[in-house]
């Protein structure tokens, strides 16, 4: 058996150790990406192997915390895939307007850019005041950042373009205050957002939702975990509630595909029908 095969065994054991010691379950994550991340962390240490890393993280919580940050993908942007946001505005919001109050779950919100994007759209459509948005992530460091609502100033140009393509009705500059090298998101957008810790791999249902956003999270999961999470979403959605996935994600590998119908196929907006 060669080096790659041995390394794969070591990775398997490391993920098992993380689960048993800290409760984070990466065992059902797509392996290629997880392995790259672990090996990159390894290269930044003085350790010689994944096995040594496993020993270290069992006894050194700070070391584990660093690895945990590496293991979650926190790349995000405001109004990512503007066409998707345009479709939400056109196809989802008219239905939401018929409800007196709304519960929305943004699962895997990372540093919050897409939560604030949604909040801006809700406000522009007169839906914000009746909405309660749960923004969740398993990573507490990332959630803390999300709560602050600070975005790097060098992204503003891109976000402004995205906002306009997404059907923005105002001037994007109305939603932030620039200070030094960063921009502070309009803090009143936070009023109806609850940021909290939730792990899709291990935690359960916590409320009945009208709309769930979970974009570019399922791509990191193996089929089995995708199935669990889509089941969790189905249970969490009210009848005819909306589920929005990332542009390359699908329900194809879950047993719940028949429980949803596509509202807009291209931008991966689905509706729970049973």
């Amino acid at each position: 058996m060669g080096k790659i095969e041995n390394e794969n065994i070591e990775i398997e054991l490391l993920l098992e150790a993380i689960y048993q010691k800290y409760g984070y379950d990466f065992r059902k994550y797509s392996r290629a990406s997880i392995k790259r991340r672990i090996l990159h962390r390894l290269a930044k240490t003085d350790l010689d192997s994944v096995s040594e890393m496993q020993h270290r993280l069992l006894y050194d919580v700070e070391f584990f915390d660093k690895l945990l940050l590496d293991l979650s993908v926190n790349v995000t942007e405001m109004f990512r895939d503007p066409n998707f946001y345009l479709d939400v505005r056109k196809e989802v919001f008219p239905v939401l307007k018929t409800y007196p109050y709304l519960k929305i779950w943004h699962a895997g919100c990372a540093t919050g850019e897409e939560v604030y994007s949604l909040a801006i759209m809700l406000r522009e459509e007169g839906l914000y005041d009746r909405a309660l948005i749960y923004a969740t992530d398993f990573n507490e460091v990332v959630l803390k950042k999300a709560k602050q609502g600070i975005i790097p100033l060098n992204e503003i140009q891109k976000y402004t373009a995205n906002y306009q393509k997404a059907g923005g009705k105002e001037s994007f500059a109305d939603y932030y205050t620039a200070k030094y090298n960063s921009a502070l998101i309009d803090q009143s957008l936070k009023k109806n957002i609850v940021f909290s810790d939730h792990n899709l791999a291990t935690d359960g249902v916590f409320g009945e939702m009208n709309l769930i956003f979970c974009r570019n999270v399922l791509i990191y999961f193996k089929k089995e975990l995708q199935n669990r999470v889509i089941g969790l979403f189905r249970e969490s959605l009210c009848n005819l509630g909306f589920l929005c996935l990332g542009s390359k994600e699908s329900l194809m590998f879950s047993e719940y595909e028949k429980n949803f119908e596509p509202t807009v196929k291209e931008t991966k907006i689905f509706r729970k029908i049973s």
Binding site: N8, S30, R31, V73, N216, I219
Partner: peptide, 11 residues
């Protein structure tokens, strides 16, 4: 992936 399938990432 090891089972000769694709995965995607936005990292």
């Amino acid at each position: 992936e090891q089972d000769k399938t694709f995965s995607l990432s936005v990292c």
